Simulated assay, not measured.
Amino acid sequence: MRKLPVIIAVAAISGGGKTTIAKQLNQKLENVKTLYFDNYNFEGPDDIINWLDRGANYEEWNLAPLVKDLEILLSESLDYIVLDYPFAYKHTNMSKFINIAVFIDTPLDIAMARRITRDFKNKSVDDILSEMTNYTAQGRRGYLEMLKTIKPNSDIVIDGTLPLLETVNKILQSINSST
């Protein structure tokens, strides 16, 4: 009987380092493939603040395209599958696949600085100020939701201020000790 791959979900707030860590794990692990949450257009809540006010039910996200791709990878002879995936175990359709959920605990100011650097490098100062206004008025609540629900729902919590390679090595040590 074929051994199933170890599925590692990497979660963090936006700008927290999910994609960077997932790419590094993809390079460091052998016989691995990675799926990236941002490569999909999921059906989900149109208004995140309203979704938060209604209790932040993660089941409202239709993750069928990601589940389908994950099931395809499970049919391959892989040792690992890395998921750049922000929900840890909070979505039933995905949680049944995950072996290890890692949360990168990045301070909100660092994550915001990364987001601005990444997403607004070709935008105007007015666009950046508008984003900051939205963040302080209501967007920050989405970040806090993840700290309240995803972080404690993860197997491993890693300090998001650590250097990249140190972070990846800590994750690899945890994977090796749990498999």
Rank of each mutant, 00 (worst) to 15 (best):
L147R: 08
F42D: 11
A88N: 01
V82T: 06
E145Q: 04
F87C: 14
I156R: 01
N176R: 10
D105Q: 04
T167R: 13
E30S: 12
P45G: 11
L63K: 00
K90M: 13
G16R: 00
G139F: 10
A56R: 03
D119F: 01
N169D: 12
D38V: 05
G139M: 11
G17V: 06
L108I: 15
P86T: 12
L29K: 11
N26C: 09
E60R: 08
L66C: 07
I100G: 02
S174Y: 14
Q24Y: 11
L74E: 08
L129H: 04
R115V: 09
N93V: 04
I156F: 07
L73H: 02
F120V: 06
L172I: 15
D109S: 03
G15F: 12
D47H: 08
E145P: 06
K68W: 08
I171E: 00
Q27I: 07
T19M: 03
I98T: 05
N134C: 13
N153T: 05
I100T: 08
T106R: 04
T179F: 15
Y40F: 10
M94Y: 05
S178V: 07
Y143W: 10
T117E: 13
Q138L: 10
P45R: 00
I128H: 06
D47W: 02
G44T: 09
F120Y: 12
K148E: 14
T136P: 08
N39S: 15
D109I: 05
L73Q: 10
G44P: 09
K28L: 11
M1L: 11
L70K: 06
L52F: 14
D155F: 06
K18P: 02
G44M: 04
W61S: 04
H91R: 08
S154T: 04
L25R: 07
Y85Q: 00
A88I: 02
L73Y: 02
Q138K: 15
L147A: 06
L25C: 12
S130V: 09
S178Y: 00
W51H: 08
